[in-house]
Simulated assay, not measured.
Amino acid sequence: MKIIGALFGAMAFVAISAAAHAQEQPTVVLESGLGDGADVWNALRAKLALPNFAYDRPGYGGTPVSLTPRDPCTIAHELHERLAQAGVRPPYVLVGHSLGGRYAYAFARLYPQDTTGLVLVDATPPGHWDALQREMPAQATALKVIKSLTFSRAMRREFDGQEQCLAQLPTAPMSMPVRVLLRTIDNSGGGGAKLRDIDYKLAQHWLALTGAPRLERVDGSGHYIQKDKPDVLTEIIRQVCSQGR
């Protein structure tokens, strides 16, 4: 997400690599954060050289706004349907940035039989909004104003639904490779080192929820690791694809 750095992150625009049907390797499914469409992955996709799928969620790009709930589980279900409609068969490696990390996590939990790996890219951890209101009330108040004045309808509904359904998902360690990546540069959008400390602390939840072995800080990267360090992220995705097979 473009607001307060790491707080967050359709078929009208579906981008699938030419090799998407080469099922000897998984398809990398890219899930964007709040306010971002498929183009946020352009630098990464230019280097990836793997079958991949990127899309605009409802309300982004030319995709119509959806009337369905905007919680992570509903969005994950919709993504699964879109992959099927596009003829992109499993297995999948889910890569989720910012708030999109929650959607990727929900997908891996709901469809473990189709998922062989998960990469969380400076993903918004559970409890983040509550922690921000508690520990950084001025920034939280500012974000509420920004939300009411500048967020699109789709963004507001995703923001409001971000915590729903996560507690209903299984919590046993995942039987797939999982990588949890964090930025090292403070975000220019606000919050600075204090927000980064909150993010690092809460990111421990991802380890408990997924069974990932450790948090990995990507040196020289801000919130948009896929833009700042596409080579690093590309190599990590390749490793996960190989391990998943």
Rank of each mutant, 00 (worst) to 15 (best):
166 L>Y: 12
51 P>M: 13
106 A>S: 02
183 R>M: 04
63 T>D: 03
39 D>T: 11
105 Y>R: 04
53 F>I: 07
238 R>A: 06
136 M>C: 09
219 D>V: 15
150 T>D: 01
40 V>N: 03
193 A>C: 07
70 R>L: 10
80 H>P: 09
71 D>Y: 11
207 L>V: 08
86 A>G: 02
36 D>K: 09
58 P>K: 02
105 Y>A: 00
77 H>D: 09
94 L>S: 01
52 N>D: 14
218 V>L: 07
202 L>E: 07
112 P>G: 06
14 V>Y: 11
111 Y>F: 01
88 V>G: 03
161 G>N: 00
135 E>I: 00
156 R>Q: 10
92 Y>Q: 04
118 L>T: 01
38 A>P: 04
218 V>W: 03
197 D>R: 05
80 H>S: 06
78 E>L: 09
109 R>Y: 04
195 L>M: 08
56 D>R: 03
26 P>H: 06
186 D>T: 09
65 V>D: 14
244 G>F: 07
113 Q>W: 00
201 K>R: 12
186 D>P: 10
217 R>K: 15
7 L>W: 13
145 V>M: 04
64 P>I: 09
166 L>G: 07
196 R>H: 15
4 I>V: 10
245 R>T: 13
174 M>C: 13
112 P>C: 06
226 Q>M: 15
226 Q>K: 05
80 H>M: 08
102 R>H: 01
130 D>L: 05
154 A>G: 07
78 E>M: 08
88 V>M: 04
11 M>K: 13
152 S>F: 01
155 M>Q: 10
41 W>P: 02
2 K>F: 14
15 A>K: 06
113 Q>I: 12
130 D>H: 03
138 A>V: 13
74 T>D: 10
140 A>V: 02
18 A>V: 09
19 A>S: 13
208 A>W: 01
6 A>D: 04
55 Y>P: 02
124 T>F: 02
32 S>G: 04
60 Y>L: 08
30 L>R: 00
11 M>H: 09
60 Y>A: 04
116 T>C: 15
3 I>Y: 08
134 R>P: 00
105 Y>Q: 05
82 R>H: 02
149 L>M: 06
205 H>N: 13
74 T>R: 12
245 R>Y: 14
82 R>F: 00
121 V>E: 03
60 Y>Q: 11
118 L>G: 03
238 R>E: 06
207 L>M: 09
35 G>D: 14
82 R>N: 11
65 V>H: 12
154 A>N: 05
34 L>V: 05
34 L>S: 05
200 Y>F: 05
8 F>Q: 06
68 T>E: 05
238 R>P: 04
220 G>T: 03
202 L>D: 11
50 L>Y: 07
124 T>S: 05
108 A>G: 07
136 M>D: 01
203 A>C: 11
68 T>Y: 13
211 G>I: 06
151 F>K: 07
38 A>Y: 07
143 L>R: 03
163 E>M: 06
72 P>D: 12
8 F>P: 02
24 E>I: 11
87 G>M: 12
71 D>K: 01
104 A>I: 10
119 V>C: 05
86 A>E: 06
171 T>P: 00
244 G>P: 03
120 L>V: 02
169 L>T: 00
209 L>G: 00
219 D>M: 14
142 A>G: 12
205 H>W: 08
153 R>A: 11
3 I>R: 14
108 A>P: 11
195 L>A: 09
